[in-house]
Simulated assay, not measured.
Amino acid sequence: MNEVRWGIIGTGVIAQSFAADFEYAKTGTLRAVASRSKEAADAFSERYNIELSMVDYYSLINSHEVDVIYIGVPNHLHYELTKACILAGKHVLCEKPFALNQTQAAELFELAKKHDVFVMEAMWTRFNPTIDQALEWVEEGEIGPLQSIQASFCFVGSKDPENRLLNRELGGGALLDVGIYPIFLAQLFFGKPDFIQNQALVGDTDVDVFEQLLLGWDSGQLASLEASIISQQPNRAVLSGSDGYIEFGNNWYETKSLTLVKHDGAERSVEFDFPGVGYQFEVEEVNRCIEEGLNQSPNHSWQNTLNLLASMDEIRDDIGVFYPNEPEPCDCGHDHDIEEHHHEHGHHKH
């Protein structure tokens, strides 16, 4: 097959990181970028040496110049744009969260199957070499049976209520933006949890700004997770077993190092040397899957994404965070539109 040709929708911070790392990918070419503003598209294409810049998302989606599209725009647009890409016969790598809820995601995967295109959530951390190393150590029994996971992703975001992180209209909130990472790590090793307990803080704009989560499995494992857009943390992750533990370096989701500590105190550290922050690895995975004619990645499958969204749906339902046009579950057996029906939940506002 010829070189896989890529297009990017969006020119924000995450799209910039993605484009910057793309040059380190061993396969694929970056052909086009689309933004709603001509200035932004032109500046982006010039900065990252991209041949085509387009002013309308749909010009790119319907273009014959690209095979696969990376979607790097705010959360509320993921469903609509992924759907348009699939209908146009394009392969898709859509930024996480893949959709606002599990219902939307399930519909998109059905559609991808029908149109026979490759679709994946851009869980770039899954393809970081440190994650593969940790999986290998756990599989080889280096720390004994894995018992618990601790992980956090916390940072101080914008205070501007219109910012995408705080804006309910844009699918804002700590859970969907950063909470998804620790949940992903826990579910990568243990699968979908059997129970979830949470304590969350919902801010003035009706989105969650901080949560502590406890995920549990009937087989006895636990994961203690934290997500915040109002507080700073070293963002470490620790996998604990009966014979030792594995600790990821700070900012575990993009770290290049991890350490295996045995119960007798013996330590082994591994440091990976790769340029950029590691978006190139998910690019290579997408290209490989497309070359092999797969419509999903065995390493981050549709079911993995559905399981992640199911957990986040459950947490949001519990803390009372809903997005426009989402049916809000209630006890009376009917779906109600969120705008006309609102429960009071026993969670803190500040």
Rank of each mutant, 00 (worst) to 15 (best):
V283H: 02
F272T: 03
F118P: 05
N304V: 07
L214N: 05
H341A: 03
Q102I: 02
P182E: 02
H300K: 01
V13C: 08
E328S: 06
L294N: 13
E51P: 05
I196H: 04
L146T: 10
V321T: 01
C330V: 08
L201K: 10
Y48A: 09
K349F: 11
Q187T: 09
G249V: 03
P275W: 04
A223C: 10
N167L: 01
Q133C: 12
T255W: 04
V321E: 09
L306T: 03
E169R: 04
V92Q: 05
D160W: 01
Q232K: 10
T27D: 02
S17P: 14
G346K: 12
K256S: 14
K114V: 02
K38W: 09
N62E: 15
A237W: 03
D177C: 12
Y79C: 13
V156D: 13
Y58N: 15
E23M: 12
L165N: 08
V73S: 14
Y181Q: 07
P74F: 10
T130I: 04
R164N: 05
E314R: 06
P97G: 00
L77M: 15
H64A: 15
L93W: 07
H348D: 11
D177G: 12
I71T: 08
H64K: 07
I319T: 01
K262I: 11
S224A: 13
V66P: 11
S219N: 10
Q133T: 13
Y48W: 07
L222F: 11
G173R: 02
K96G: 14
Q233H: 10
Y253Q: 11
F109C: 14
E107C: 04
Q212M: 04
V138K: 08
E291K: 01
G172M: 07
A88N: 12
L176H: 12
V66L: 12
E3Q: 05
Q280E: 04
N49I: 00
D56W: 00
E46C: 04
D264N: 06
P275F: 00
L166V: 11
P161K: 04
S45Q: 03
R236F: 11
S269F: 03
Q187D: 06
K114M: 13
D160F: 09
R168T: 01
L165T: 04
F127A: 09
Q233T: 13
L188Y: 06
H334C: 11
S301R: 05
T125F: 07
A122T: 00
E254F: 06
I246C: 11
A227Q: 14
Q232G: 09
R268T: 09
K83S: 13
L100K: 12
K256D: 12
I50G: 01
P74H: 02
G141N: 06
